[in-house]
Design a binder for these strands. Structure first.
Lengths: 205, 205
DNA sequence: ATATCCACATACGCTGCGTATGTCAAATTG
DNA sequence: CAATTTGACATACGCAGCGTATGTGGATAT
């Protein structure tokens, strides 16, 4: 018996997303021609419009995939740290490091907002944010950090780290700039610590 | 005597930039048709290509104008504060507030990075950053803040504030979210203060 | 085994960017 | 001041690429 219908459909979706991910990262959203990337996947534009509706739909699927990977990686990194404050710092540092990946830069940080609108409105990016937000909430409960709005703090932390990463990536020598960025990030992050703690734990892990 | 040549040229450039600014803010970069916006300015695409080279060139000119206005406004706001630390906070808050302007959001924050690349590579955005960087440098000299890399700190501060602003703008009720964002921003900013100062001056102005 | 369906391919039109060419008024020259 | 040149902008054209409407063959249903 030949392959089942729904099975090949999933395969084709995956092929298209993979090809699109490469094309979008390589050429940017605007300059990625759909004829090219579908051909790359051994298909035509027909498959694409059937599965994803339009170019934006395909792009959204790609962003979704990358965001999921990012959230997973951030969580994984955070889990390695002993206490929750260091976990949060690690998470931020993880975002900085991930944003050094050209694929992440081009697709998520540069083209993403233009094509899909503000990141806070994407369900996928929200996953990334939820990871951070939950970490902040725990810290607030325990009195380790100031009683700020958890979402506000989470957004500022991720925003700062992603922005720092773009800067590092654009600089000539990432090697020397990256530690500066991480140091500044840890310093700023320590600003949300509750006063009595800010001396002991402000250092980076 | 009729108008001088260079004079009308400047007028036309200004007309095009004004029309483009409105169109880009309204429709977004991709959906703004150049035939439309040139007609709006009482001209044709010929004028546009002659003056700005291509669509990106016109967009860059628009971004340049907006960024100049933003830097001026930030500086102006900062100048009203008595001490330099409060100046810096005011500056950050000013960015948050400016980013609530739909024109700034769409053109500078959403489309800008996709069309022109990472903001840190634009000369205009660099102006905004220089304002903050200089403020940070002064604070470091005086020992008010930790001896971090000034550029790193400046980028993190502006990144955090702009990101926060996007969040506020995307939220349903900006009225209640804005103060939370500002509070969190001030908290995080206080993280770059030197230890012996962090209690006294961490509050927002 | 025949009929139905649907995932995808093929074919078409339309929009919109960029360029090549034309034109007329302002500037230059003697 | 007339003749000539310049250049800012308009006009006309070609082409790429998106979205849609229609066609088709193989899997599923009966």
């Amino acid at each position: 018996m030949a392959k089942k219908r729904s099975e090949t459909m999933q395969e084709n979706r995956a092929k298209l997303i993979a090809a699109a991910r490469k094309a979008f990262a390589d050429k940017g959203y605007a300059d990625a021609a759909m004829d090219d990337l579908t051909a790359q996947a051994g298909l035509t534009r027909g498959a694409l419009y059937h599965n994803f509706g339009d170019k934006r739909g395909l792009f959204a699927a790609v962003v979704n995939q990358i965001d999921s990977e990012m959230a997973a990686r951030a969580k994984e990194r955070a889990a390695c740290e002993p206490d929750e404050w260091r976990s949060l710092l690690r998470e931020g540092i993880a975002y900085i490091e991930m944003a050094l990946d050209p694929e992440v830069q081009r697709i998520v940080l540069l083209d993403g907002p233009a094509v899909l609108g503000d990141p806070s409105t994407w369900p996928s990016q929200d996953n990334c944010l939820q990871v951070t937000k939950q970490a902040v909430e725990k810290l607030i409960e325990k009195g380790i950090t100031k009683p700020l709005d958890a979402e506000a703090a989470a957004r500022l932390l991720s925003g700062a780290s992603l922005n720092a990463a773009l800067w590092v990536a654009a600089s000539d020598d990432a090697e020397t700039v990256l530690p500066k960025a991480i140091e500044a990030f840890c310093a700023m992050a320590s600003g949300i610590l509750a006063p009595e703690r800010s001396f002991a734990s402000a250092d980076q892990p």
